[in-house]
Design a binder for these strands. Structure first.
Lengths: 122, 122
DNA sequence: CAGAATCCAAAATGATACTG
DNA sequence: CAGTATCATTTTGGATTCTG
């Protein structure tokens, strides 16, 4: 087996290996989604309540990301027909299945950031 | 304790809870970094070899992301003084510490994508 | 080979004002 | 309250050419 062959085989293996990652990034990637999901792990929340847990997010972005999460089946949106309106967001079962992944990310961040720093998104 | 108080307390707790996440997103967030790191978990690689394991990445982006990962101390860049040049990238100890997090992401992706789909980045 | 430099297009994000 | 709509800005990405 020549060197070239083993290199190509390794590349193909890596590409395949990266599939799951690519899918995950597609669904929960981006600047806001992990934080949104992580907040919702605490339980259902109304729109403005959720927004307050995520410093720096704009209304536009929060709504857009919530819609994408809903499309991908991670988040359920409950609209109550009241005045003033009330909308609650909560994780679906699929949404809850991201917990280990999100917890890993959060743990890693807490482990490696300087203890004193309080990091806000961005 | 009024409702408002408990809501505020919950928000502050969530904001703090999100710090680690925010830090993690800052360091390994973005479209390419998780895939780059995940590929490098396989071992050190030369620039073009690494590029082949990540379909869709441009030279410009790959270099830029590698530089940022280097700045954050996750990746080491070894330049060999040869002609033609050889540059090898490998994870530092800090880089390796992302393995559980990356593995979680990849596992989640593999678990939930349709088994037949082969997902390329983007 | 491993990039740097340049130019441009497209997408993501932000700020603000407005509305059912 | 929970968004929309609009516009401005930033970031990201791609294509191409060039170089030690």
């Amino acid at each position: 087996m020549r060197k070239q062959d083993s290199t190509n085989a390794r590349n193909e293996a890596s590409i395949l290996r990266n599939c799951g990652m690519a899918y995950a990034l597609n669904v929960i990637g981006g600047r806001w989604k992990p934080t949104i999901l992580f907040s919702l792990l605490e339980g259902k929340m109304r729109y403005n309540e959720l927004r307050k847990t995520i410093p720096g997010v704009s209304e536009r972005m929060l709504v857009a990301q919530l819609r994408e999460l809903e499309e991908h089946g991670l988040v359920r949106r409950n609209v109550f027909p009241e005045v003033p309106p009330r909308v609650e967001y909560e994780l679906t079962e699929l949404g809850h299945s991201t917990e280990p992944m999100l917890q890993c990310m959060s743990d890693w961040g807490n482990m490696h950031r300087k203890k004193e720093q309080v990091i806000a998104v961005q």
